[in-house]
């Protein structure tokens, strides 16, 4: 399986190629430039790996939550590529990919992941990483006020993601003794999308290109008049 992975849900724009392991990756923190960057990045990666475009057998993307425009860009680019190549798609949670990155970089196995969702809320997910490196969600992902996010009952957990920078006091106060360190600058990367996407596809959880749609979590985006 030759997999292309992309992630554009936050300030970071990234892409990776995967074949049993990550072959190569590009990662840039470049807010509002993702639309210009993503296809040239993919093209560069193929050249670096010496792969032809048509040798790709699947596409994985960060399906959100994150910036509405960002997750839609990843979904749209994935749809175009997967439809054009007639290959399946893996939809990977952006929060789960962040948990995996935190495990890779900090060797932390219990993660409280928060992305700043604006409007005094965070996108929230809690994850445990088992001995084999599998990520297991501990609660349903949600959008919530920082002081009301669902917490695990016990243990020591690491807080990761920009939500911890934007709402430091509210989140740390709420998490209390559960919290054991934070990385409030951590952003999702396509490397983790690739690995998690590869696992999904191996389990037979790939979907058709038209099902490559975002998960926004925040769905009340307009108010009806009167």
């Amino acid at each position: 399986m030759r997999l292309l992975a992309l992630e554009t849900a936050t300030e970071a724009c990234s892409a990776a190629l995967w074949e049993d392991a990550v072959i190569c990756a590009r990662y840039r923190v470049a807010p509002r430039q993702h639309a210009e960057l993503i296809l040239p990045m993919i093209e560069e990666l193929l050249i670096e790996a010496g792969w032809s475009r048509t040798s790709l057998t699947a596409v994985a993307f960060g399906r959100g939550p994150g910036s509405f425009t960002g997750v839609r860009l990843a979904a749209s680019v994935t749809q175009g590529i997967a439809f054009g190549l007639d290959v399946p798609v893996a939809r990977v949670s952006t929060l789960e990919a962040m948990a995996r990155r935190a495990w890779r970089e900090h060797a932390a196995r219990q993660l409280l992941v928060a992305i700043d969702a604006r409007m005094r809320e965070v996108y929230w997910g809690t994850f445990r990483v088992d001995e084999a490196g599998h990520i297991i969600a501990q609660c349903e992902e949600c959008v919530s006020a920082p002081g009301e996010v669902p917490l695990p009952e016990s243990g020591t957990w690491m807080g990761v993601g920009t939500g911890w920078a934007s709402y430091t006091e509210l989140l740390t106060g709420h998490a209390g003794a559960l919290l054991n360190g934070t990385d409030d600058a951590l952003l999702p990367s396509a490397e983790d999308i690739a690995v998690l996407g590869g696992e999904q596809l191996r389990r037979g959880e790939g979907v058709a290109p038209e099902e490559a749609v975002p998960v926004y979590l925040r769905d009340n985006v307009a108010v009806k008049p009167g």
Binding site: A35, L39, I42, E43, R53, T54, F68, T69, R72, L73, S76, V77, T78, Q79, G80, I81, A82, F83, G84, L85
Partner: peptide, 20 residues
């Protein structure tokens, strides 16, 4: 509309790339 345009442009440009 910026967001609406982006969907069509991204799907279209990516489709063209995939088809060469």
């Amino acid at each position: 509309l910026a967001g609406a345009l982006l969907v069509g442009a991204a799907v279209g440009r990516a489709l063209a790339w995939a088809l060469g």
